[in-house]
Amino acid sequence: MDSVIKSYFEDLEAKDKDVQIEAFNNIKAAINEEVDWAYEVWDQLKEWLTDADNHRRSRAAQFLAGLAKSDPEKRILGDFPALWEVTKDPKFVTARHSLQSIWRVGLAGKEQKEMVINHIVNRFQDGAHEKHYTLIRFDMIQGLKNLYDELKEEEIKQLSMDLIETEEDIKYRKKYKTVWK
């Protein structure tokens, strides 16, 4: 890991919120591509998934999801349950930010893609009891759309459309369909 990236991780702990935000955005930009330093931060990020600080939990989830494509050892397969838990965080903003980035794990390979899709499908079908469930469903449909945009696999689009059709409330069905326009 070069000194610039290292300084971004250090700046996540800065007192100045603007410095933290800039560091966060720079790390997110860096992990849009494959990186060779994923394992230098992996264990720390894994620990942050259960940190008392919701900002750390959120950052860890977003970073690990992005780093999945830089994971040739496929550690994400074993660590995914802990990552998925953050999508159900008691702090809704943390849960939502995590859920909005979880689709990135699917870019890491076939196994990872299937794992993400299966979790999304199960939650879409079985999570009606969750608070803010319509927002959560919207985020999951958006995640499938993002995955489709990257991979161009028609079965992802079809699956998403099939899930949308299971929505009983026509208002929300229409809202979810707007993701695909």
Rank of each mutant, 00 (worst) to 15 (best):
E22L: 12
N146K: 10
L64E: 06
S58W: 00
E153Y: 11
V116H: 04
L107C: 09
M161G: 02
L49V: 08
W180D: 06
S7H: 07
T134E: 15
G143A: 03
G143E: 10
R56I: 01
A68N: 10
F9A: 04
M1L: 13
V41M: 01
V105S: 13
K152D: 04
W37C: 00
K131W: 04
I102M: 15
Y133S: 02
N146I: 01
F80K: 01
D53W: 01
E33F: 01
H119Y: 13
E34F: 00
K88Y: 09
E154P: 00
V179M: 14
E155K: 14
Y8N: 13
M115I: 07
L77S: 01
D11P: 07
A95C: 13
L12Q: 07
Y8K: 05
E168P: 09
F138T: 06
K171V: 03
A23E: 14
H129S: 14
E34T: 13
K6F: 06
Q44W: 03
N25M: 03
F63R: 04
A14K: 12
D139R: 02
S160M: 08
I31N: 04
K88S: 10
A60I: 05
N122S: 14
P90N: 14
W180C: 06
D79Q: 03
R59K: 08
L163A: 06
W180N: 12
D162S: 15
S98P: 01
F92P: 00
R56Q: 13
N118K: 15
F124E: 05
M161N: 04
D16P: 11
L83H: 05
Q100C: 07
K181I: 03
E154Q: 10
D18V: 08
R173Y: 04
Y133V: 04
K131H: 07
R96G: 00
G127K: 12
Q112L: 01
L159W: 02
W180V: 01
E85S: 04
L83D: 06
E10T: 14
D149M: 03
R123G: 00
A30R: 10
W103S: 13
E130S: 11
E168K: 12
A14Y: 10
E155W: 08
Y172D: 03
S70V: 13
A23Y: 12
I120H: 06
A95F: 10
N26L: 03
D149T: 05
E13Q: 15
W84N: 11
V121S: 09
G106P: 00
L64M: 09
K181G: 13
L144V: 04
R104K: 14
R57E: 02
K171C: 02
D169G: 03
L45H: 13
K110V: 15
G143M: 03
A30P: 02
V105I: 09
K88H: 12
Q100L: 07
E13R: 12
E47C: 09
F138C: 06
T87W: 12
Q100V: 02
N32T: 07
N122W: 09
G106N: 01
E154H: 11
A29G: 03
R104A: 11
A52L: 13
L67C: 12
V86C: 09
K157W: 08
